[in-house]
């Protein structure tokens, strides 16, 4: 869908201004106003929005999908896409739930969950880089394979483990310094990704590969390793999300996180990361995740019909991309 367009598009020359914009600094400030406006509207029409318990709930919801959206951002920055994250969450989820139910130690469950995510992500990366399969196709395949794996492992049944591991619940349900633990996990992931993207060679390579893979190759960047790296990270973060989600739900369902990939893509795109690669960043995605979650929360608080909610959500995604395209055209016309 986006991949072919991405490869054929010619990105703008990297001026100082566009470098700043790439880092997401300028766009992010615009998104803050959008988010603030939404919050003001929400508070005016439904003052309960600002209740601490609602804000905590919104923060937790943002975090749960946001972790995967951070990985998605790094993938999309290379002009790729990862459709397999929801299925990877399901595979890691049912395996970890099965282990917990069998009474295995929590540290081993955590390691296995993260390893499953990283491994499936690495497989995506290897086939995309060495097999030259377009990311859309490879991760679409992995999405179907992963869902099938999750169904096979669980036999199609939800895997309950409530009795087996009460202490595991802290990861998804607990609080630390007044904030839900998943929010801390999200902030840690986002801060790490921000640091990597801005201050490490790997991070700069991600932008370079996304802007112009040929130029990146000619300037000595290992394009293959960079692309492999982002899919590995995306898979790893899906494994992490699986741990947080099953801890919160106390069950590993093979249907877990169905459609998560689309939510994560929406959060990334609304956050201003270009599907053509090379532009955007983590701060935008944090705001994008917050905007998507606050919107859903508002619509539920207002009592908007679920069918109308879908229409509104769709409009917002299209509007975000329209705005992005308009901005790009205006810039390239200069």
């Amino acid at each position: 869908m986006t991949d072919h367009a991405a490869r054929s598009a010619s990105p703008p020359a990297p001026t100082l201004l566009s470098r700043l914009r790439r880092l997401g600094a300028l766009r992010a400030s615009g998104l803050i106003w959008v988010l603030l406006l939404m919050i003001i509207v929400a508070v005016i029409y439904k003052p309960t929005f600002i209740n601490p318990s609602n804000l905590v709930s919104v923060a937790r919801q943002t975090a749960l999908f946001g972790i995967v959206a951070i990985g998605m951002t790094m993938v999309i920055l290379t002009a790729g896409i990862d459709l397999s994250v929801g299925s990877i969450v399901a595979v890691a989820g049912v395996v970890c739930a099965t282990m917990l139910d069998a009474g295995m130690p929590i540290w081993s469950v955590v390691i296995v969950g993260l390893l499953i995510g990283a491994t499936l992500g690495a497989i995506n990366g290897i086939v995309i880089v060495i097999g030259r399969v377009p990311p859309f196709i490879m991760t679409l395949g992995m999405m179907v394979i992963g869902r099938g794996l999750a169904m096979t492992i669980s036999g199609g049944h939800p895997v309950h483990f409530r009795e087996a591991a009460e202490s595991f619940a802290w990861l998804g349900q607990g609080f630390l310094l007044g904030l839900p633990v998943p929010v801390w996990v999200f902030l840690l992931v986002a801060a790490s990704a921000f640091f990597v993207l801005r201050y490490t060679p790997f991070g700069r390579n991600i932008y370079a590969v996304g802007s112009n893979p040929e130029a990146a190759r000619l300037s000595g960047i290992n394009v293959g390793a960079t692309i492999f790296g982002v899919y590995l990270i995306s898979g790893f973060l899906a494994g992490l999300t699986a741990l947080v989600m099953i801890s919160r739900l106390t069950v590993g369902e093979p249907v877990l996180a169905t459609g998560l990939e689309l939510e994560a893509i929406a959060m990334t795109v609304i956050g201003g990361t270009s599907l053509f690669g090379g532009e955007g960043g983590v701060i935008g995605t944090i705001l994008g995740a917050a905007i998507v979650t606050v919107l859903a929360n508002m619509l539920n608080l207002f009592g908007v019909s679920p069918f109308t909610q879908q229409i509104v959500k769709g409009f917002i995604i299209v509007a975000a991309v329209l705005f992005e395209t308009y901005r790009r055209n205006r810039n390239s016309a200069k």
Partner: peptide, 12 residues
């Protein structure tokens, strides 16, 4: 679960 969390806020 997310929907219910929102409803908990909407309905005292």
């Amino acid at each position: 679960m997310r929907l219910t969390e929102d409803w908990i806020q909407r309905f005292p």
